[in-house]
Every structure is written in structure tokens, then in C-alpha cells.
Design a protein around this nucleic acid. Sequence first.
DNA 1: CTGAAAGCGCTTACAG
DNA 2: CTGAAAGCGCTTACAG
Lengths: 340, 340
Amino acid sequence: MLPHYATITDVARNAGVSVRTVSRVLNKSPKVSDATRRTIECAIADLGFQPNLRARGLAARRSFLLGVVQGDQNAHVVGVLQHGIVEVCSEAGYELLVHPVSVHDPRLADNLKNFVRRTHVDALVVLPPASEIEAVPRLLARLRVPSVGIAAIRVPAYPAMLVTAERDAASMVADHFVSLGHRRIAMVTGPLKFHSASEREQGFRIALERAGNPLPPCYTREGDYSFQSGLAAAVDLLSLPNRPTAIFAGNDIMAGAVLKVARDLKIDVPEKLSVAGFDDSDIASMLSPALTTIRRPLIEIAREATRRAITLADGDEHSLPDHHITLNLIVRQSTALLAA
Amino acid sequence: MLPHYATITDVARNAGVSVRTVSRVLNKSPKVSDATRRTIECAIADLGFQPNLRARGLAARRSFLLGVVQGDQNAHVVGVLQHGIVEVCSEAGYELLVHPVSVHDPRLADNLKNFVRRTHVDALVVLPPASEIEAVPRLLARLRVPSVGIAAIRVPAYPAMLVTAERDAASMVADHFVSLGHRRIAMVTGPLKFHSASEREQGFRIALERAGNPLPPCYTREGDYSFQSGLAAAVDLLSLPNRPTAIFAGNDIMAGAVLKVARDLKIDVPEKLSVAGFDDSDIASMLSPALTTIRRPLIEIAREATRRAITLADGDEHSLPDHHITLNLIVRQSTALLAA
DNA sequence: CTGAAAGCGCTTACAG
DNA sequence: CTGAAAGCGCTTACAG
């Protein structure tokens, strides 16, 4: 079906050397004379030869394939992360295989196991929230495939991790609200079974306590990161007799929902209500007013995770120290001093 | 490095048959007795055997790999499309390789050629706007790799295409505005070198002409689909002495920018200004007011394109008739009758 | 520094 | 219906 591409044999014949020597050049072995190397490189260029990854992988027991395991995340976050991953992959001669899974799928482990066995990926990058499921890195360790997890906490069994300091970030939002004079402060959390959500909730709650202004249960609502859930929580909070003057939402999407409800209820933001989100996704600056939020440097996170995955795949190291990522508060127009 | 997975030889030994017969079962050949088949299936399950895609591909001259070529698109659109593609892939036993390219890269063709040669993908799905570059399907045809393009127009050389009726869709927006009593109607287009943008522009312009209300040049601005460009265009249009009462933006993101500028300028939407977008991406319903827009059924588009790609990869057909997709207008809160 | 040969884990005419 | 053997396009100890 495919046309006849040039093979390593063609190159060897064309250059008048053995296949072995061509292979040495392909694999950058130093034990080739410069003259021979040049002849071979010419032959490669002449024939437009590209080594067949499958054959290479079969012989070398490597696939040159990197996998990304992504759960049910917002498409924007996944899109941006993937971009960073592919970038680093192609620099290193790897291709990227995507494997979406559902965090709620009871057969997740089997599914992942079969994926690894079929494809023989050399390493995996596991995105949140799938990264948080402890069975995932354990399974991967058993299959002896190196994996790098990205999450808000250290998850046992990953040989390498990128840990985002989401708890600290949430505490910055709390401090920001307090410094603006707010006392009636509320939060719409993500689904608390996920660490991403509970870390943000705890960071926020603890910082408020520390500031002598604890977060009361009646000012807390649990959402599921969706716009719908944000809408419901916002309606709830904003119809309270003593409604909050500041609301922190667990992600930008739910913060957008708070903004929308406030507008419908004719509560001016930021004059009567301050709102902050989390992620600094593309919508944050598109909303009106533009959203104060926590920036997660997704591209950098993706690149760094991929570099680590490739280091592990190359077999130089079996594990790497955790990489901690500090997040920053981006103040825009949705938060302001509490009007007297 | 990887652990010793069970191979076809292990299965054959375990089942007491030859490798050839196991291969027949894997490839669903009918020429195996039921008893033998059952024995082999047991052995496969016992050993947790998964055929090695690389070895399979090398021998069968197929890779079981599908590629998706994606240009610089908004991450959300890509994320959703990918989701649909992977879904169909895994049902059919294919894995998905992502290959992002830049539409402006002069070495795009080389880049794509090397990708195809390295990976030996069995077929490609090409997303807009990369799909519109005529050199892409021509190259792919020369490499004899089946490809399915998704675009707003028929592009020569694709053996199969999904064509979205964006021109018709844009004319629906024009008719909608006119039926609401608007006369001063403006448009912020995408980058007109892309057919996606020019089709939308033409559909809109022609429908307005037909309605006896032509679109004047002073009411037209060219953006590049980015929020920034939408902001600039909106500021321009809304500071016109005789400012428009309705604006159609070439995508939801730029429509969001129009909404934002209107708010800053204290022009009430939809009372004083109607705004419509294109895509029905996730932000459309998050904006305030919720955006009237054209829905592109991305998931269905992705699934259908993938089904076609797999049909072509399986070699049953060399080309398939074009599949035309009708888009629908979704009326939300950002458009209304022109106030007297 | 270079080469002939075996082998990676499958599929596929060819026999039987 | 089933099997022994060659081959897909590479890499890798092993010699030289």
C-alpha cells in the first residue's frame, strides 16, 4: 500500500558500506571515521531516507513513542499542555501518542495496561486528574514503563513528578481578599475527591484562619469544575441574606459562572463583589471584567515533564527528584477594595 | 528495559499450535476451527497477551497508527476534535499520533513528509486551517498515504473530505440580523487568506446584498481570530459616528471581544447592539450575555472524518464521496430586535 | 574503524 | 484447517 521508501539497505549500497555502519551513523556512534560518515550522510540525503521507527523500535526494544494519559479535563488545558509536550518530543525524535481515559472508568487499569503493551511507549506523561489515581503509577511501575506525573501533590510510585504548589497559590488569593478589606469571603470548590480541588480549598481555608477570618461552612459550595455547577453555587451564595463580598472559585470556568450570575443579579463586579479564579486559562482575560486568577504555567509544565520523561526513557536515570512549581497571582479587574 | 511481555510464540506454545494459527486468530481469519480458536483465545487471555503493534506493523506493512495534523488553532477546538478522533480510533484498534504544524512554516511539506516516513501512519486526518493548504493533500497523495481533510471548501487531491457549509451558516446570521430589523450591520472577519474566514465573509456579505442591505467596507474589519484583534476591530467599529447596531464576528473569541468593548463603552447588549459569533465553542454560553452563534458539531465531524480515514487505511476504497455538514444557528441572548 | 549474522515479534505466500 | 520458513527494516553483541 505504501510506496517503497528507501531503507537502510539502500543507503548502505549507495554509500558502499555495510548496513551496520549506516546504523552506527543513525545512532550517532562515535566509532565511524569522518570520511565514512560524510559519505553515508550524503547517501541518506540523496535517497531522502528516514529510518522506519517500527523496525528501529522492534530491534532496539524502544518505540520512540511517548504517551500522554489525559483524563476528563477541560479541552483548553489539555490542548495547551499537549502543545508543550509535542514540542519537546519532536526535538528529541519522539512521537506523541495520546491516550484519553476516564477517571471514573473502573477498567482504567486494564485499559492503560493494554495500551502500554500494544504500543510499547517508551515513557508516559500523566496529566491531572488521572495522575492522582494511585493505581496508575503503581501499574506503570509494574509494567516498567517510566512515567512522569503532573499533580498538586506528591503521588507515591511516580519515578518523577511535577508538583504544582496549588495550596500556596490558593492562600495568596485569600491574602489578596483580606488585604482588600473583605471579611465575608466565600469559596466554590472543585470536586473535593480530587487533590487539585482539596489542595486549593485547604490552602484558602487555612490562610483565612491564619488571618483571623475563618471560612464558614455556609460560605462554601462544592462544584465539579463545570460552568453549570458554578452557576448553581453562585446563585446559592449570592442569594444568602448576608451574601459574601468576595468569592474564590476553584477554576476560571466556575469563576466565569459567578461573574455571570452576579451580572444577572445586578451585583456589580468588582464594586460590590470581588471574584477570583484559578488557571489563567484563555477565558480569564476574555471575561468582563477580566478575571483575577492564579496562573498555572502550562506550557512550561508540559515541557519540563516531557524532558523528564525522555530522560527516563533514555535510561540514564531511574528516577528524578520532584520538580516543584510555584504559581503566581494575576490581579486583573474582577477584584477590588471593599467599598465602605 | 521493558519487562518480558508474552509474545505470539508463547501463546502458540501454550495452546499447542503453530504461530501461524495464532496469527490467523489475531487477524480474524475464518479458516480456523472453532475448537482451535477457543484454545488459542484462552491462551491469549491466560498470558494477558497483546500483539506488539510494531512487529505487526513491520510484517504487515501497516502501522495501526493514525495521524492528526493540526495547525495553529484554538486549543479548545483541537481538544474537542481530538476527543472524537481518539474515540473512533480505539474502537478500530488504531492509536492516535498528533502532529502539530505551523501553517506559516515554509518547511511544512518537508516536515510532514518526514513525519509520514518515520511513523508510517496508515492514514491522516487533517484539521483546518492546515487542511486548506493545497500542497498538503498533494504531498500526501504522492506519498500514497490516505488522508481526510476537514475544511470549509473542497480542496483538490484529498481522497475524502468533510466540508462544513460555513458560507450558508454565515448567511443565516445575516438573515437573522435583518429579520430583527437591523440595517447598520458590521462584520469582523477572520484572516481572509483562510477559506474558513473568506467563506464566512462571503456568505454574510452576499446574504446582506440579497436582502437589499449591502455590507459597506467601512463596516468591515479583518481580524485574525484572536481576542486582541477582536478588541481592536470592535473599538474601531463602535467609535464610528454612525455605529453599527449588529456585529457578526468570524469566531466566538472575537465575538467575546466585541462584547467586552461594548461593556466598556456602556453599550448595552443586546438592547443597543446585537452580537453573533461562530463555532459555539465552550465560551459561547459562558459569556454574558450568552452568545448567539453558529454551531459546528465538532465531535461528529471528528468521528466521521476518522471513520473515513480508517476505511481508506483498510484499503477497501481509494476515495470516498465528500461529506457535507450543515451548521445551525443557535440563538441566545446576545441578539435582539432593534429597539425603535 | 568496519562487517556478516542473528534476532526483535509479527505476517504471508506456499505447501500439505 | 494447519505448519515450517522467509522476510519486514532495523540494532547489537561478536569478530576482525
